[in-house]
């Protein structure tokens, strides 16, 4: 009797042990660094060429969202000086908007029974800020050119519009297959709103970069 019980245990632990054995405990540190850097760059590449691969969702990381959010905040900070020298767009506003917005959009998708985990969705929404970050960089560089303001505004509007389309298209390309078919619009609308709000901030930033 006792022997049978024990043998049952042995089989159980062995199968569990093999499943967990990934074997990265003894790898050199540079292998770890190289793997993660490669993962970040691959994800950036997939965002710029959306619809190619779903790898963005399979192993998520928050490096891309963090760095893009910091860069975006830095480039948007200090727009429109108010009466008492306080900027109307503060770095912290952008930071809270990106993370809070991504969290709200994700929770909304989950409540509508989308089969996507919290960090997967935040990762996707964050990486898809890449086109908009490039747009704010381009837009602020354009502001240094000696061209009439109205012409520059139209060019910036086009750039931000294209970037907005790119971001939304990219994120939906990654997320759409995980969303419930009959409630897709209810998830897509907040995603649109999220990127649209950031686009408005980009257009509100009128200071030239240099």
């Amino acid at each position: 009797m006792a022997a049978e019980e024990v043998s049952g245990n042995i089989v159980d632990t062995q199968s569990r042990g093999r499943e967990n054995d990934i074997g990265t405990l003894d790898e050199p540190v540079y292998v770890t660094i190289k793997r993660d850097l490669k993962a970040i760059l691959t994800k950036c590449w997939y965002v710029l060429l959306p619809g190619r691969n779903k790898a963005l969702l399979h192993d998520w990381d928050l490096w891309g969202p963090l760095l893009l959010c910091l860069l975006l905040g830095l480039l948007l900070h200090g727009a429109g000086h108010g009466s008492n020298e306080e900027p109307t767009i503060h770095f912290v506003h952008v930071f809270v908007m990106v993370w809070g917005g991504a969290a709200v959009v994700t929770i909304n998708a989950q409540l509508l029974r989308g089969k996507v985990s919290f960090f997967q969705s935040v990762c996707t929404l964050g990486y898809c800020l890449l086109p908009l970050t490039l747009a704010v960089l381009l837009s602020r560089l354009l502001l240094t050119l000696p061209v009439p303001p109205s012409a520059i505004f139209i060019i910036r509007l086009v750039i931000v519009g294209v970037a907005l389309f790119w971001s939304v298209w990219g994120s939906l390309g990654f997320l759409s297959e995980y969303l419930p078919a009959n409630r897709k619009a209810l998830v897509i609308y907040p995603v649109l709103l999220f990127y649209f709000a950031i686009s408005c901030l980009i257009l509100a930033q009128n200071d030239s970069l240099i």
Binding site: N20, D21, I22, G23, T24, L25, D26, L57, H58, D59, W60, G114, K115, V116, S117, F118, F119, Q120, Y178
Partner: peptide
Amino acid sequence: RLLVGLRWWNKVEEDGTSVWQFE
């Protein structure tokens, strides 16, 4: 992993549930 010989991962399955993995 160097100091205490432990490592944790959080993987996401196909159906969107997150799974903890430990070494």
